[in-house]
Structure formats: C-alpha cells, structure tokens
Amino acid sequence: MTDSRPDTEAAYDAWAWLYDRTLGPAYRDRKMAFLERALLSELPPSAHVLDLCCGTGQMIAPMAAHGFAVTGIDLSADMLRHAALNVPQAVLKQGDARDFTLDRPVAGAVCASASLNHIPGLDDLERVFRSVHAALEDGGIFVFDINHPAQMTRHWLGQPAAGEIAADYAWMITPRYDPASATGAFRVDMYRRPDGASSTGPALWRKLLSRPLMRWRRMALLADFARRHPDWDHRGEDYPIHGHDLAGVRERLEAAGFDVRMETFSGKGAVDADNAACFIARKRPAASAMEAAE
C-alpha cells in the first residue's frame, strides 16, 4: 500500500486482519513461481531482498525460508503488525513507496499483487522507480506486476468478482474501472460475526459454497449478505486504483536507470486483456546509466 494520505492508511489498517487470512496467502501462492523464476533464481544465496508494499508479509515468509535476508516496507502500521507476527526475522519499516531509503543496498526488490496500481500517476510511479533504483546494487533486479488498462476495461465491470463466506467472517471484492479517466477502485465489503449473531449455516454448506462450481451461488449470497445478516459488523472500503499505460511504465523505468523486459506470470504468451503485466527491470551499472542519459 502506498498512498501517503492518513485516511488511506487507516483504510488499509482496517483491511489488514482480512488480507492476512485470505488474499495475502492466495496472492503468494499464485505468484511465487514467477518470483522464483524472475528474481530469486538470479540472486546469490543469502542475498538481501526488498519487499516493497509488503502487506502482512506473505511474500516475505517463503523468501526468508529460502535463506534470503528480507526488508519489508509498507505504509500501513497494522499490515506491518501482522507481518511482524508472520515473519519475525524480517526487518520491517513503515514508509511510502515513493520516498524511502535503506541502510544498505539490496540485490533484488519485489512489489507484488499490483500494489503499484495505487500510485496516482506516472510521475509518482517514476518516484517509486528512482527510490528502488537507489536502493539496489548495480545489476540488481526489480520485479513487479501491474494491472493494465486493457485488462481492467475487460474485467473490472463493477460486478462482485471474489469473496468468501466463513463461520465468523465474510468478504466480497467488487472492482470497477473507467477507461475514459484511467481510474477506478476495488470495493472490499468486510463482515465480522459478533457474539450471538446469526450463523452462516453448517460447515458442510460453507465447504460446498467454496467450490469453483458454486461461485455463482456464493457471489449471490455475498451480494445480499448485509440484508441477510444485519446483526453482523460490516465495513466497506473503496481502494482507488489507476490504470498506467504500459509503454509509459516502461519509459519511466528506463528513465530511472533500468533495462526492462515485460512478460506474463507464466512467462508464456503475450501480455493482453486477460493477463497482468509483469516487469523485470535490472539496474544499469553507473557507467551505462550515464551513457544512456547522454
């Protein structure tokens, strides 16, 4: 999470408990193969790695298990509180992705789960890139994934897209995107069951609902959850996002001093409306960077 406004920080603090249980582990499981291929396999053993916008530390844990020393940065204090419990050996710092410094350089950096879509424009995005560039050793690698305009135009249609119904909590995400303004948001509706509140049904029913073939039924129940469970605590938050032109992202990376390539998570096929864009950027040595600027 990156926006420095206090209200945005509080919004992410409110989501930390849910993210730690649900989306954090899910994102890690989907993206670790890419991270291992694009970054970790390129680093020497015990290298120092930066996890920028680290959230609750879900990506840090497997990196630490591989023997890497990891520093995590996030703006949300509550996200970092969970990260400290998940990965006590990591160094954790509260800060803005656009303006941070490290005590010593890192060999690699990652910013996962489309966190950079929260950056409001290419100028601010370049600030992120320059901060990462300053934190990296010469030849260091920076990898990140980003949702792009063609992808969001096709899929972010203001309809519930994901969610879960558990015994003591439920959640639903509804993404929307406006191509004309290149802005949007994903809304997270979070429900927690107070003592004595109504049940969501037997455990077997919830297990059936979690199956892919029952997605339509699960999403229908979540869309109607507030009416069906008025005695549950409910909080809804909108998290603004920005659609960054991929050519512009590449240009800003190059201007910040990186050599760049782009691919899909699988490393196969083209980045298109059905695939997020994954950037792999290598910091140019100082001499090369000066030559490129001339």
Rank of each mutant, 00 (worst) to 15 (best):
G140H: 01
E291Y: 12
A69N: 12
D51T: 00
R37Q: 06
Y191R: 08
D29S: 13
V110Y: 08
V260P: 06
D123N: 09
Q159E: 15
R193N: 05
A256V: 02
Y169G: 03
R130K: 08
H133N: 14
E42I: 03
D20A: 15
N86V: 06
A65I: 11
N86L: 15
F144W: 07
R261M: 11
V106W: 11
Y239P: 02
H155M: 09
S113F: 12
D51P: 03
S181P: 02
H155F: 10
M214I: 00
H66E: 14
E126K: 04
F265R: 08
P160I: 04
W232Q: 04
L213F: 13
L213W: 14
P160N: 06
G67N: 04
S113C: 12
A64M: 13
S46K: 15
W156E: 01
D274N: 15
P202L: 00
P25M: 04
L116K: 01
A226K: 14
C53K: 03
T174W: 03
E294K: 12
V128W: 04
W232S: 02
A65T: 13
V143D: 01
R37F: 06
L222I: 05
R284T: 00
Q89L: 03
M59L: 14
A220Y: 06
P105R: 08
R227Q: 14
A277Q: 03
G184N: 03
D29A: 15
